[in-house]
Design a protein around this nucleic acid. Structure first.
Length: 726
RNA sequence: GCGCGGUUAGCUCAGUUGGUAGAGCAUCUCAUUGACGUUGAGAGGGUCAUAGGUUCAAGUCCUAUACCGCGCACCA
C-alpha cells in the first residue's frame, strides 16, 4: 500500500488550517471586518438588496449584564437576519436598550443602600437620577460589547434607548394624542400599591406567591365572618351575603345592626350582593373597599362609603385606634388576641392561599384607592373607526382584519384571552427614573406639555410605566413621530422575536400602541422563544448556582459553539436545556468544519470554483442532486422558522454525509481517477463546501467566514452578503 | 377553578397531510500514529404514559384518566 502522504499532499494550503480551529484568534477580527464593511446597515448593502426586512431587537434592560436568555434571543434573531440578508433582502436589525424604570431604579437603590446605607429620600430626585443614569450607561456599554461578542449583526448606526431624547419626543406625542382622544385620564381608582417600592404597578407586574396562614372566624353581631386578614377589618361596617342564601333570609338589604367590634360598638349595614360565594366560609363577609378589588366593586355597586385603613407604608391609620401606626404584619397577631379576649374569636384554621407580590421588589401588594393616570381600553375612538383600544388589539387575531401570525400559534389564544380580561391600564409610577408624566398643574388648571408652560406651573411628580415607552418601540426607533424614510421603509417590521413570558407586558402593548398611533400592526409575525434552563430543566438562578454565562462559554469554546448549542433542540415556544457538554460538542463541530475545509482545499489545489459547473460522472451528478435536495429542504424550513431542524440537518449533512462518506470515497477518485473524473470531483467538493458554508453561516458565522476567506471563489464577497444556496 | 403544553431508547429530543419507530449524546465491541485537540465501522436498547374509540391502517385523529410543567383567575 502506498503511503497516503503521496496520495494527499498538502501543498500550499494556508498555515492556519494545520492547527485546530482557534475561535479566539479570529472572532474579534471578523466582527471588525463586518463592522467595517458596513453591511449591518441596510443602506450600505449592494443594490441587489431591495425588498426590506426588518426586526427590532427587544431592548435588554440596562440593569447589568447579558445572561444566557439574551444570548439565545440574539442567536435566533441573528440567524433570521443573516439568512434574509443572504437571500437579498434589505435587512435591518435595529439595536437598543431599555431603561426599565422600576427594575433599574430598584437595582441602584439596592446598591446604594447596601454600600452607603442611604435611601432615595436621602439623596433626592436629582442625585438619585444622576446615579441611576450613571449605572445605566455603564450597563449599556457592557451589554453592547457582549452583544457584539455573540456575533450579532445589528445596525449600530441606528441604536436607540427607550429614555433618549428622540424616544422622549415619541412618548410625549403618544401621551398627548391619547390624552386629546380621551384615552388617558386621571382618576381615583383602586390600584396595585407596592409598599416596598413605594409605587403603583400594573396587573402584569404582579406575581403570586403561595402563603400558609391562618383563617379566622369571628363573631360579627349575629353573624360569623371568616377572614385571613383581620388587620383590615377596622373600618368594616358592611356585612355582605348572597340574596338567595337561605341561612340569612331573616336579614334584609339595608338593615342596620348594632354589634360589638374590635374597638367597641359599631353600627353595621346588611348588603345583599350576588357576587358572594355561598359555599365559602360561612357565606357572609365584611368588606374593605379601600383595600380590595372585589370589595371595591361591591361598594361601587351599592354606593357605599370607602375608608382607608392602611397607609402607603403598610401601617395602620388612626381609624385603628390603639393599633394606629403599627405595621400590618405586626398588628395581625395583636388584633386576633384582642378579639379572642373579647370572646369574638370562634375558631381558626390553617389556610393556604396566594398573595400578590411585586415582581421587582418582592413587596406584598396592598390595593389602595389612589389618584392615578390610566389608559382607557374601552372608550370608542372615532379616528379609528369607532373601535376601542381593546377592539383594535383584537383586530390581529386570525379572524381579524389585520392578522398577526403567532409562532407557535397556540399563543394566539393566550393573547386574546388576556385581552378579554383586560382592565384599564394604570400608567403612572411613583418613581423617579423614567419618562416624567408630561402634565403640568397650576391651581385647578392642567396642561399637557413637554416643557413648562410658564411661570407658576408645576409638573406631575410621577413617571410613566416603562412599558408605555417600550410599546412604541417598533416605530419610535424608526423616527416617529416624524415622517422619516426609515419609517416608510421598515414599518411594520417583519418579525418580532421575543420570549413568551413578555407577551402581555410588551407584545400586547406594542400592538395597542401601533394599532392606535400608526393605524397598522407593529409586526407581521411574532416568534416566541422559551426559557433557557439548565441540564436538569431547572430555571437558572444565582441561588441555585447553576448559571451558565454565555460569555464565559464563548471564551472557552468559541461563540459559534455557544450559538449552535442554543439553537439545536430549541423549537419556538419551548424551553431549552443547556449544558456545558452540549457546548463542547459543537466546539468539535466547528473544528470538524475546519478540517473538512483543510481536506477540500488541499485536495483541490489549483482549482477555482466554477459557477454552473456540470458534473462529468454519474456519481457526481447524483451527489449534486442530493446536495440540492438538502439545500431545498433546509431552505424551506428556514422560511418556516424551523431553525432547530436546519441546524441539526446541516450538522448531519456536513459531518455524517459529506465528511464520513463523500470525502472518504473521494480519496480513491482523487488518487486514481482520470483527469476529467478528478476535475469533476474537485468541482463537486468545492461547490458542496461552498454551499455548506453558506447555509451554515447564519448559525456559525465566525468559522464559516474565516474558512470562506480561503475559498477559491471568483468575484468573492464576504460570506455575510453571499447569496443563499437556493 | 379555567386554560395551555408535555409524557417516544439510559439522557436530550425529532417524527411534516395517519402508511413497517428515528437522530445526537451515553454504553459496549472493533479499527486507526497522516484531513480531524481524535476519528471511523458496527452493536445493544422503545408494548410511543394508561384505557377506550374512529380507520384497511394510529406515535400521529377523537374521548376520558394519570403524572409533570406553565399561564390566567382568584374566596372574604
Amino acid at each position: 500500500m502506498e503511503p497516503k502522504k503521496e496520495a494527499f499532499p498538502e501543498p500550499n494550503i494556508p498555515q492556519k488550517f494545520l492547527k485546530p480551529y482557534d475561535p479566539k484568534a479570529v472572532e474579534d477580527a471578523i466582527y471588525e471586518m463586518w463592522l467595517g464593511s458596513g453591511y449591518f446597515n441596510p443602506d450600505k448593502l449592494p443594490p441587489r438588496h431591495k425588498e426590506p426586512f426588518s426586526i427590532v431587537l427587544p431592548p435588554p434592560n440596562v440593569t447589568g449584564t447579558l445572561h444566557i436568555g439574551h444570548a439565545a434571543m440574539l442567536v435566533i434573531e441573528d440567524i433570521m437576519v443573516r439568512h434574509k440578508r443572504m437571500k437579498g433582502y434589505k435587512t435591518l436589525w435595529l439595536p437598543g436598550t431599555d431603561h426599565a424604570a422600576i427594575a433599574t431604579q430598584a437595582k441602584v437603590e439596592g446598591i446604594i443602600y447596601k454600600e452607603e446605607g442611604k435611601r432615595r429620600q436621602d439623596l433626592g430626585r436629582e442625585e438619585l437620577l444622576r446615579r441611576v443614569n450613571e449605572f445605566a450607561l455603564e450597563s449599556h456599554d457592557t451589554i453592547v460589547n457582549q452583544t457584539k461578542k455573540m456575533g450579532a449583526s445589528l445596525d449600530w448606526s441606528r441604536e436607540a434607548y427607550t429614555l433618549d431624547e428622540k424616544r422622549g419626543k415619541a412618548v410625549f406625542e403618544a401621551f398627548k394624542r391619547m390624552y386629546d382622544d380621551g384615552l388617558i385620564y386621571r382618576g381615583h381608582r383602586i390600584v396595585n400599591w407596592d409598599p416596598k417600592g413605594q409605587t403603583t404597578i400594573s396587573d402584569d407586574e404582579i406575581v403570586y406567591a403561595e402563603e400558609k396562614t391562618k383563617f379566622y372566624y369571628f363573631k360579627y353581631g349575629p353573624f360569623t365572618i371568616g377572614t385571613a386578614r383581620p388587620e383590615t377589618k377596622f373600618g368594616d361596617k358592611y356585612v355582605v351575603m348572597h340574596p338567595k342564601d337561605e341561612r340569612y333570609t331573616a336579614y334584609s338589604h339595608g338593615q342596620e345592626i348594632d354589634l360589638e367590634w374590635i374597638n367597641g360598638p359599631i353600627k353595621a349595614t346588611v348588603i345583599k350582593d350576588e357576587s358572594i360565594d355561598m359555599a365559602f366560609g360561612t357565606g357572609v363577609m365584611t368588606i374593605t373597599p379601600w383595600h380590595s378589588n372585589v370589595d371595591f366593586d361591591i361598594a361601587e355597586r351599592h354606593k357605599l362609603d370607602k375608608e382607608q385603613i392602611i397607609d402607603r407604608y403598610g401601617k395602620l391609620l388612626p381609624i385603628a385606634g390603639e393599633f394606629a401606626g403599627i405595621k400590618i404584619s405586626d398588628a395581625r397577631k395583636k388584633i386576633v388576641e384582642k378579639l379572642a379576649a373579647k370572646g369574638l374569636l370562634e375558631k381558626e384554621e390553617d389556610y393556604t392561599h396566594n398573595i400578590a407580590t411585586a415582581e421587582r421588589t418582592g413587596g406584598v401588594i396592598e390595593p389602595q384607592i389612589m389618584n392615578q393616570w390610566f389608559v382607557d381600553v374601552n372608550k370608542k375612538i372615532p379616528a379609528r373607526g369607532g373601535k376601542s383600544l381593546k377592539e383594535l388589539m383584537l383586530d390581529v387575531i386570525p379572524q381579524g382584519p389585520s392578522h398577526i401570525e403567532f409562532i407557535p400559534d397556540r399563543f394566539e389564544r393566550v393573547y386574546s384571552n388576556w385581552i378579554s380580561n383586560l382592565r384599564d391600564w394604570c400608567i403612572s409610577r411613583q418613581i423617579w427614573f423614567g419618562h416624567r408624566i408630561p402634565v403640568w398643574y397650576k391651581g385647578e388648571e392642567l396642561k399637557v406639555s413637554l416643557a413648562s408652560p410658564g411661570e407658576g406651573w408645576t409638573q406631575d411628580e410621577d413617571t410613566l410605566d416603562t412599558w408605555f415607552s417600550s410599546g412604541l418601540w417598533t416605530f419610535s426607533t424608526l423616527g416617529w413621530p416624524e415622517t422619516t424614510s426609515d419609517l416608510a421603509t421598515y414599518h411594520p417590521t417583519a418579525v418580532l422575536e421575543t420570549g413568551y413570558d413578555i407577551i402581555f407586558f410588551w407584545v400586547a402593548r406594542m400592538i395597542l400602541m401601533s394599532q392606535y398611533l400608526m393605524g397598522e400592526v407593529p409586526f407581521k409575525t411574532v416568534y416566541l422563544h422559551g426559557l433557557v434552563r439548565d441540564a436538569k430543566g431547572q430555571k437558572m438562578s444565582k441561588s441555585l448556582g447553576n448559571i451558565i454565562d454565555p460569555l464565559d462559554m464563548a471564551g472557552k469554546y468559541g461563540t459559534d459553539a455557544v450559538r449552535m448549542s442554543l439553537i439545536v433542540g430549541t423549537g419556538p415556544g419551548n424551553d431549552t436545556k443547556m449544558s456545558e457538554d452540549k457546548i463542547r460538542a459543537y466546539k468539535n463541530f466547528a473544528n470538524k468544519l475546519w478540517n473538512i475545509a483543510r481536506f477540500v482545499l488541499s485536495s483541490t489545489e489549483g482549482e477555482t470554483l466554477e459557477p454552473g459547473f456540470k458534473a462529468f460522472s454519474a456519481d457526481d451528478e447524483k451527489l449534486t442532486a442530493e446536495r440540492r435536495a438538502v439545500m431545498e429542504e433546509i431552505s424551506r424550513e428556514m422560511d418556516e422558522y424551523k431553525y432547530y431542524l436546519v441546524a441539526e440537518k446541516l450538522y448531519a449533512y456536513a459531518w455524517r454525509e459529506f465528511a464520513d462518506i463523500i470525502l472518504e470515497r473521494s480519496k480513491d477518485i482523487l488518487a486514481k481517477g482520470s483527469d476529467t473524473e478528478k476535475k469533476s470531483r474537485k468541482q463537486f467538493l468545492l461547490h458542496t463546501l461552498a454551499d455548506i458554508l453558506k447555509a451554515l453561516h447564519p448559525f456559525v458565522p465566525f468559522v464559516t467566514e474565516e474558512i470562506w476567506k480561503d475559498m477559491p471563489v471568483p468575484d468573492k464577497k464576504p460570506l455575510i452578503i453571499e447569496t443563499w444556496p437556493i
